[in-house]
Computed example of a mutant assay.
Amino acid sequence: MKERQQDETITSCAGCGVHIQSQQPEEAGYIPENAISREPIICQRCFRIRHYNEASSVAIDQDDFLKLLGSIGTTNSLVVHIVDLYDFEGSLISGLQRFVGNNPVILVVNKIDLLPKGMNTNRIRNWVQQQAKSQGLRTIDIILCSAKRNMGFEHVIDALERHRNGRDVYVVGATNVGKSTLINRLIRDYSDMERELTTSRYPGTTLDAVHIPLEDGKAIIDTPGIVYTSRMTEVVPRSFLGTLLPDKPIKPLVYQLNEKQSLFIGSLVRFDFVEGERQSFTFYISNALNVHRTKMERADELYENHKGELLGGPSVAELTEIPEWTRHSLRVKQGLKQDVFIAGLGWIQVNGMYGALIDVYAPKGVKVMLRDSMI
């Protein structure tokens, strides 16, 4: 076991798993030659993330991600799919069942600590089960947890003990779902390998598959995060992620709106209540985001004059790097309680008692959809 660990640290970064090289500073895995003798060996990118909370942009071929996922189907393994409860539809790997074949899947739903206090976890679990089934994902277990806050993690360990049966464990997930944080907990609680993966708010931190040896000769394999450009987290400037992503329980914002009223979420999204009886809309978004109400007839002018300033960030200069808005027209039928889900941003719960016609303007490519209410 010890020999295997030393061999791996010579060729790959202990933080992100990428192959180490000292010839091309702009490429992934770069480390100065005078640092190669250090233990554990950490690439320059991981070093900067850990110590300075910064990351360079490194292009990783998406085809390699898909090949890696596809190879899981040829193995006899247990698959742990980690999703972000706060961004469920945005972080669920589409078509995962096709990649993993007959291998069993445990769905680990992370970041439950972000939900408002007092939530019924059984209801949340039932909601997750229904949503996963509707996406064609077959699971043998669903675990709700918060790796960051150490909530429910013992259930993850229990599930691995019950379902692994001497097999390798592949951990898969989209970027920024807390996968590396959870893997670090597994290393401490379930493996004899003393190292930490690199964790940060930046999408795509893990660049290559990282093998974490287990005592029985098998391994936990941490795969790179899949980058979904349909999420707001992938289109905003990295400097704005700290505002966009909540790090503590969300305090729902409730707005009583008349038809023909608009709400701006920062300068990122515009929400128009086009038609319907006066009713409440509950916003489940980061409380660091600014929400501004106006009349629809004034919304265009207000945006042009105050985007990036009164309406909140990103800045005017940063907004030029974000795709132009696309309008999504959504109708909530009377009697249905639904969420307007915006990938990477959060969701707006529509009461549904009266029905409503809603227009959502969001950056082109960002997923906007109606779903059954989570809460």
Rank of each mutant, 00 (worst) to 15 (best):
L244R: 04
D208F: 14
R164F: 02
D189M: 13
I157K: 05
S230G: 10
G178V: 02
T175I: 14
R201G: 03
Y228L: 08
Y190D: 10
I187Y: 08
N176Q: 11
I212M: 09
S230C: 10
V235C: 01
M151G: 08
G173L: 03
V227W: 11
R195I: 12
L186I: 05
L160G: 00
T229G: 13
F240Y: 08
T229P: 08
I221S: 09
Y170V: 02
E161F: 11
M151S: 07
V177L: 01
E154C: 05
I157C: 05
H163Q: 10
D192P: 12
Y190I: 08
R201F: 12
E154M: 09
D158K: 15
S230Q: 06
D222W: 04
A159T: 05
D216G: 07
E234V: 07
L182G: 00
T206D: 08
D192Q: 14
G173F: 02
S230M: 05
T206W: 11
V171I: 11
S180K: 01
S239I: 06
G173V: 01
L182Y: 00
E196Q: 10
K218A: 11
Y202D: 09
V235R: 11
T175N: 12
G242F: 11
V227G: 08
M232P: 04
Y170M: 09
S239W: 03
E215S: 14
T181S: 09
L197Q: 04
D192K: 03
G242T: 13
S239H: 04
S230H: 00
D222A: 13
A219G: 11
T205R: 15
E215F: 06
G166Y: 08
V172C: 04
G217C: 00
I221R: 08
M193N: 14
D216N: 09
A209E: 15
A219Q: 12
G173I: 07
E196W: 02
N176P: 09
T233Q: 08
T175A: 14
F153R: 08
A219M: 13
V227E: 13
P224V: 10
K179M: 01
I220M: 03
S230Y: 00
T206A: 12
T205A: 06
N176G: 07
K179P: 04
T181R: 02
G166H: 10
K179H: 01
T243Q: 15
V171Y: 00
V172R: 03
T205Q: 11
N165E: 15
V171H: 02
T243M: 14
I212P: 10
L160R: 01
G217E: 05
D208V: 06
I221V: 13
Y228N: 14
